[in-house]
Every structure is written in C-alpha cells, then in structure tokens.
Amino acid sequence: MVKILQLFTSEAQLVKSLQKGDAKAQRHLYEKYSGRLLAVCVRYINDKMEAEDVLIEGFMKIFDRIDQFKGEGSFEGWMRRLMTNEALMYLRTKRHIEVDLDAPEAQHLPNYEWADATLEVDDLMAVIAKLPTGYRTVFNLYAIEGYSHAEIAEQLGITESTSKSQLHRARALLQDMIKEIEDLNQTAEAVKSLKGK
C-alpha cells in the first residue's frame, strides 16, 4: 500500500495514470475513495448490499469516463457526482422515488438548541435512512451534495416547489428524530451517572 501511495503523490498524477488504464492506479483510487463513495451510495440507498452494487457500477463509470475529467474542480467532487447519479439512476429503475406529498408536517417549531457534538455519523446515517425515499433524496441532494432546487427538479423530474416542500418536510422529520436520539442519549447518560453514584 505504501508503495502504491508513493506512486501517486499528486491527484493529477493519479488521474493521468487512471487515464492510461493503470491497474495500480485504479486499485489506489478504490482504496482511497471507496469508503467515502459508499457512504454516498448508502445515503441514497439504505441497503448496504445494494449500495455496494451501485458503488461497483459507479467505479466502472469512473474508470470508463476518466478521460472526461478535465481537471476542472475537484476530482473527488467529480466522482461524487458520478456516484450520486448512479445512485439516483438505481433508485429510478429499481424503485420509484415516491414524492410523499401527504407526509405529515413536523408538528413543533424548529428548535436548534441541540448539542450536535453528541451525534455520531452513524446516528445521522440512521436518521437519514428512516426518511421516506423522496424526502431523503431531496435532502441529500440539497443539503449535502449542494444541488439547487432547479437542479434537483430536473434530476428527479419534479417541480421546484415540490423539491422545496420535500426539503422542508425532510428537515422537520430529521429534527424530530434527532431530538429523540438526543433525548435517548441524555437519558442514557443520566442512567449512567445514576449507576455510577
């Protein structure tokens, strides 16, 4: 591994080697980015096995279309976009992205005073996984990938206003769930401290 890492010190070098179809470079890229890219896939597709299949397809596309990467913007950003598109395509073909318009609004007013430090990545992943597919997809695209509503509307074949409303509802649901988790964590800590006494 060390040897391989030494070979591709700069991203430009790595890309160049990938464009030549260098197997070592491909392996290196996979080692370096598969974890992050699988996290992207899992955010869209809850099932890890399915997400892995999408990851593999995504890597195939990355290796295939490496020539299309012109060095504009970050290489990782380019790969993430490819992987996101792959995940969306999977969702489109395997399942329908139901746009849950009639899902209940979050009842309470947003309260932003949570101690986010206690929330772990796994918690957040679990929370996102609980969202309905439509909410989850829009939230992922908007909040994490940084797409605009116009882009999301185009990608998913929905209107911008639908995208916006989906995002609002997703946020509200997430907030509720995070609250629950925090409450649970607090009670767990309280129990711990009681036991300690």
């Binding site: 598969s34 996290a39 957040l124």
Partner: peptide
C-alpha cells in the same frame, strides 16, 4: 442548521465496503 449539521458530519463519512466488492 440541520443541513449544516448533516453536511459537516456526513461529507466525510466513510462506510468500508466488504472485501468482496473489489
């Protein structure tokens, strides 16, 4: 704030694929 929270935490999130995936 919610977007920020998730973006911060999940952008660098990693899930290691199984060895079979390679």
């Amino acid at each position: 704030p919610i977007d920020k929270l998730f973006a911060q935490k999940l952008k660098e999130a990693e899930i290691k694929p199984r060895d079979e995936a390679w």
